[in-house]
Design a binder for these strands. Sequence first.
DNA 1: TGCCAGGCCCTCTTTAGGGCCTT
Length: 204
Amino acid sequence: MGACNIIVIDFETTGLSPHYGDRTIEVGAVHVANNRIVDQYQSLMNPEVRISNFIADYTGISNKMLSKAPKIKEVMEQLRSFIGHLPLVAHNASFDSRFLDSEMDRLNHKRDNEFACSMLTARRLYPDAPNHKLETLVQYKRIVTDGTHHRALADATMAAHLWINMIADIKEMYELPEVPFTLMQRLGKVPKKKVDEFMAKFRT
DNA sequence: TGCCAGGCCCTCTTTAGGGCCTT
């Protein structure tokens, strides 16, 4: 039932690389069941280091906001409870999975959730989009938003709607009654010239 | 917006280089 029960997740962080000491400062996660958002989780977290002006400007998150936020460890324990063992989706999942795994590793916890990438799937499904940034794809698919960008819950929500849209488009384009999570996940890895060949295997 | 990373993907490729995405 993976297709209809997933968690879409997004992190704001102090930078690009956990291996160079960057930490998470906010997480947003939405639970999608039967192609609808049914639950959500969001929290800032205190990285206990000052964030750069670039990150403050990029996210709108200030050092003052973070100084009042719970510690990363507390938030990660709550996040772990929220996501359970459900399959995970993120836009450019290699980024979010690195940070999730890095923070969980500090708690001696190893992720067992599957991960899929909405960016890789969108590149296969929408090759003619102007580019495959989350913001652009949301406009391309005419997904209604509240205008917030680069905040974790807003971005996770937009990625969730993009994911739901892609499932609907695949159903229509390839005449499939259901679109399993594994199809979406594997579609992101298929050579672009072999997308139709790959999809044909799922048609009955 | 930066330039500190890394996986993916294209091409003027594979003995490599550079753009795309994420913060």
